[in-house]
Design a protein around this nucleic acid. Structure first.
Length: 722
DNA sequence: CAGTGAGCGAGCTTCCGCTTGACTT
């Protein structure tokens, strides 16, 4: 009997679909695209109406052959690739590459892999949507033209081989460079605050008692504007004037506030939260999530996929999963924690294609606790995060009472001041009993504090005034995760590429991560500026959003993809030509001067791929120095500077720290040295792991200095365990 | 696991987006 052939993209999906459809169907995975433009040449015949040249990559030949053979024996070939632009194109490439008879082809689409959704989809197949395929071809060809024409130009002008540029990576780079410029231009502004520790008159207990509370000077009574205290002198003047002032409660305002849970994870929010709570980079998060998706052997049940697909931009969730969550919530927390209505989340991400569900546990009933023995530590932590986020997303609102106490302080001079205290009380935890989203920026959260009960007219006792100095802070540098969020906001990149984008700009040497904070390198700044000044069209951060609108027109059948490309390329090729002729060749200045001839030193790359400083007077002056990064720590043997260095040998060129006086002194250590010497033997201390420092001479070790850690702006909100 | 590095100076990568294993030093 002839079988029906079903083609999906992922092997895990193939397994599940196979189970749902039963025998009579052969389900096979395409493993993504099976055809693409050739890697080694541009592969687009520009003069011939942008005709693409498609090839089947070596590692896909066998698969295509297998599909071809299966299709020859099949009565029907169902193309069940993902329901988006790329999925439609994968299907089309498949039948083209495998030479499948179009008469037996059917296209089916489903947005969730549940029995009902899949069966429903197979009852309503349709034909391939060539308009959608054409939109993908336009996207693919445009990216190829931009990437393969821009990259060599940048490389040539900077005399630096192997540089790259592209619609997406160059936008990501620009975002990082723009932020750095903001940080560089930022001038901190000083301001002061004055706090008063207060207590109800007649109450017992001193400063430490929990019936005391802190309030802050807000304004002069009668003034609408908050008081600005620019410097120490004015703070002291106010402080002195308030000595001996009388305090009384003017007004107490209590406002009931509802808090709603966050939407279940999509790729970008999972990457953000895994960074905030687990300090996993984008790559690591995706690879652990992939393991959970592909399945883990659970004792008796064999291999089970624990989460839904992890590359998604949709917060939609299958109705059956919501019901399961509600069952679990009722059992674990009680009926109060189950909202009357199921929650739906419809936050649309710009350019979202919504081909999959949100990232959720495949069953809410598989609690993290029950899986503990089957998962390794990383898998368990990430599963725990995904599970809690999803279950919480179906729980009741939290209810919080926000209290504001306005206090009048009357100074001896008779001047009246307004002090204000804020606090909040959790009346009903709701979803907060299980999960609370982490935060990027730590604005001092006064609102979390508990306030004692006071009423208007109550006289207050002043337990002490305190003035404090503050400075405004520059915007924080991006982490991989916050960069991904920014890209997503602008519709740049896709869930499957976020992790790769943040890797690419680092691999190219455009951006460096310092304790997770992305900082552009000299090279990165020069490349980015070069693109901004000569390729306005491409370097506009709205370019992708505009492109998506045009691709939509193609997908709707309102515009031809070749005409769209031709319009784009007209402008683009003019810029390329203009830049090729007029853009000057450029060096990468380092700001350092040659000590031999006084000319500026430039950054260059040698044939090993590592960078060095070269005198701009070359070849007259052959001075060259290595780009060493000082650690700021002295060599324990000779007092020279310890420098960060990279080993030449081996593929993963490991980092170590060696003396600047090499080869005279060949002191070296692998761990990063810390400035403070050992308190026991005054030997050199190095970092061991992330939080401890140990001595290289004796056995002494201690927690890493607090000065190291105070830089991380990202604080975690504490998740309350159920 | 331990040792790791000092002299480099224009050639053939490079794009984005969809998916997993395939490799050994």
């Amino acid at each position: 009997m002839t079988k029906e052939l079903v083609i999906v993209e992922s092997p895990t999906k193939a397994r599940t679909i196979g189970r749902i459809l039963g025998s009579g169907h052969t389900v096979i995975a395409s493993l993504g695209h099976v055809r693409d433009l050739p890697k080694t040449r541009i592969g687009v015949d520009i003069k011939n109406d942008f005709s693409p040249e498609y090839v089947i990559p070596q590692d896909k030949r066998a698969l295509v052959k297998e599909i071809k053979e299966l299709a020859q024996d099949a009565s029907t070939v169902y193309l069940a690739t993902d329901p988006d632009r790329e999925g439609e194109a994968i299907s089309w490439h498949l039948i083209e590459a495998a030479g499948v008879d179009p008469k037996i082809v059917q296209r089916v689409v489903f947005h969730e892999i549940t029995e009902s959704a899949v069966k429903e989809a197979f009852e309503h197949p349709r034909a391939l949507d060539m308009d959608l395929v054409d939109a993908q071809q336009a996207r693919r060809v445009l990216d190829r033209l931009v990437g393969y024409e821009l990259s060599p130009l940048v490389s040539k002008k900077l005399r630096w081989w192997g540089l790259s540029a592209g619609r997406v990576q160059s936008a990501a780079l620009r975002i990082v460079v723009d932020r750095e410029r903001e940080v560089e231009a930022f001038i901190p502004v000083e301001h002061w605050s004055i706090g008063a520790l207060l207590q109800k008159e007649g109450a017992t207990g001193g400063k430490k008692a929990n019936n005391s509370f802190t309030s802050h000077l807000h304004s002069k009574v009668g003034d609408k504007q908050a008081l600005n205290i620019p410097d120490e002198a004015s703070a002291k003047k106010l402080n002195d004037g308030l000595e001996g002032a009388t305090f009384a409660v003017e007004k107490v305002q209590v406002r009931g506030v509802k808090q709603r849970p966050s939407a279940p994870f999509i790729t970008s929010t999972l990457q953000q939260e895994a960074w905030r709570k687990l300090r996993y980079g984008a790559r690591k998060t995706m690879s652990v999530a992939q393991q959970l998706y592909e399945g883990v052997t659970l004792g008796d049940q064999g291999s089970v996929g624990l989460i839904t697909y992890m590359r998604t931009d949709s917060t939609n969730v299958a109705a059956s999963a919501v019901q399961e969550a509600r069952v679990h919530i009722k059992k674990a927390f009680g009926a109060d924690y189950v909202p009357a209505q199921t929650r739906t989340y419809s936050r649309k991400v710009k350019g979202a294609q919504e081909a999959h569900e949100a990232i959720r546990p495949s069953s809410a009933l598989r609690t993290p606790d029950r899986l503990r023995t089957f998962l390794n530590a990383e898998q368990h932590r990430l599963y725990d995060l995904i599970w809690k986020r999803f279950v919480a997303s179906q729980m009741a609102d939290a209810q919080v009472d926000r209290t504001t106490i306005d206090i009048h302080a009357t100074a001896k001079s008779k001047q009246a001041y307004l002090f204000r205290a804020t606090g909040s009380v959790l009346k009903f935890p709701g979803f907060r009993a299980l999960y609370l989203e982490g935060q990027d920026d730590s604005d001092e959260d006064e609102a979390a504090k508990l306030l004692p009960t006071v009423a208007a007219g109550d006289a207050l006792k002043n337990l002490g005034l305190e003035s404090k100095q503050h400075f405004t802070e520059p915007p924080p540098r991006y982490s991989e995760a916050s960069l991904v969020r920014s890209l997503e906001d602008k519709g740049i990149g896709r869930p499957s590429t976020y992790a790769a984008i943040v890797s690419t700009i680092q691999d190219r040497g455009y951006v460096q991560a310092d304790r997770g904070r992305l900082t552009p390198t000299l090279l990165g700044k020069v490349v980015s500026d070069m693109l901004s000044s000569h390729f306005k069209q491409i370097s506009d951060l709205n370019f992708t959003a505009k492109l998506e609108d045009e691709l939509d027109e193609v997908a709707q059948g309102d515009r031809s993809w070749r005409e769209m490309l031709s319009t784009f390329y007209g402008l683009f090729s003019t810029s390329i030509q203009e830049a090729t002729e007029n853009m000057p060749r450029q060096d990468i200045p380092t700001g350092e001067t040659c000590e031999l001839c006084g000319k500026p030193m430039n950054l260059k790359k040698n044939r090993w791929g590592s960078t060095f400083l070269s005198c701009s007077g070359f070849p007259e002056c052959r001075n060259a120095k290595s780009t060493q990064v000082k650690t700021g720590v002295s060599c324990p043997d000779c007092g020279g500077d310890l420098m960060e260095r990279k080993a030449k040998k081996g593929k993963r060129r490991s980092t170590f720290y060696g003396c600047s006086n090499y080869p005279t002194c060949n002191f070296a250590v692998n761990q990063k040295p810390v400035p403070e010497p050992c308190p026991e033997c005054s030997g050199l201390m190095v970092q061991r792991g992330r939080i401890t420092a140990k001595c290289t001479k004796c056995a002494y070790s201690e927690p890493l200095g607090s000065s190291e850690q105070s830089q991380g702006e990202e604080q975690e909100a504490e998740a309350v365990e159920a």
